[in-house]
Design a protein around this nucleic acid. Structure first.
Length: 214
DNA sequence: CACCAGGGTGGTT
DNA sequence: AACCACCATGGT
């Protein structure tokens, strides 16, 4: 199913344009800043960091948390995110930089990332998939909503089970990356209610299409 | 004005 | 293990 779904989304939506040309560290910072926020708000914070030449591990590890907080304010939860972003930079620095971390196997690196405050399963997988190019599928709110609406056995799976199933059916990093970025970059087009909306791109396969309101 | 957005954390039942 | 409140801004 994952391969087929990728083909369907690719045909309907075309190539996603998401995080193109961003540096490794910019992706790491973006993954943290976008938590529970719109990408447009997170992007403002990222651009500010870029303009101030703060998108280096050493600069982020050294900046005062209060100052960092004011700079990333548009991303929301800015005090929390500031201390966590600085902590993440200090973690990277203490391990000799991103290139050194990249020598670790994916499962080990994932555990290391999850041990950092503010890095949960989704953020860890975004970092693994987009900053380190690992073969990982990111289960986020859009993916969860989409798979809930596809008929078949996916309904009721835990995040971990869904992630494993997708990764088993689509083992290469390129495809997993493309599938997830297609899902999120067009996620707002998918219906959120019963019955499914008329414009739903997957209306022919959506479980909730043509349901009566309950 | 109310509700939402690509989460994570710590506490309570 | 399943809830809950909290963190906070910007858009509709």
């Amino acid at each position: 199913l994952p391969r087929e779904l990728l083909e369907t989304l690719r045909a309907q939506l075309g190539l996603p344009q998401w995080w193109q040309g961003a540096s490794q560290l910019e992706i790491v910072a973006g993954a943290l800043l976008v938590q529970r926020t719109t990408w447009s708000n997170a992007a403002r914070a990222v651009e500010t960091l870029r303009d101030r030449a703060l998108l280096s591990v050493d600069a982020l590890a050294a900046i005062e948390s209060n100052e960092l907080a004011t700079l990333i304010r548009p991303a929301g939860f800015y005090r929390t995110k500031a201390t966590r972003l600085k902590g993440l930079a200090r973690f990277i620095a203490s391990h000799g930089g991103l290139a050194t971390l990249d020598t670790l196997p994916t499962d080990v690196l994932r555990r290391q990332l999850l041990a950092q405050p503010g890095v949960g399963p989704e953020t860890a997988d975004v970092i693994l998939g987009y900053a380190f190019g690992r073969a990982v599928f990111v289960v986020d709110a859009y993916a969860r909503r989409l798979f809930e609406r596809l008929d078949g056995s996916q309904a009721g799976l835990s995040d971990g089970e869904l992630k494993e199933r997708i990764e088993r059916g689509l083992p290469d990093a390129e495809s997993l990356n493309e599938l997830h970025s297609l899902i999120v970059s067009h996620g707002k087009r998918y219906c959120r209610s019963k019955p499914c909306c008329d414009g739903c791109p997957l209306s022919d396969r959506c479980q909730y299409f043509a349901l009566e309101e309950s």
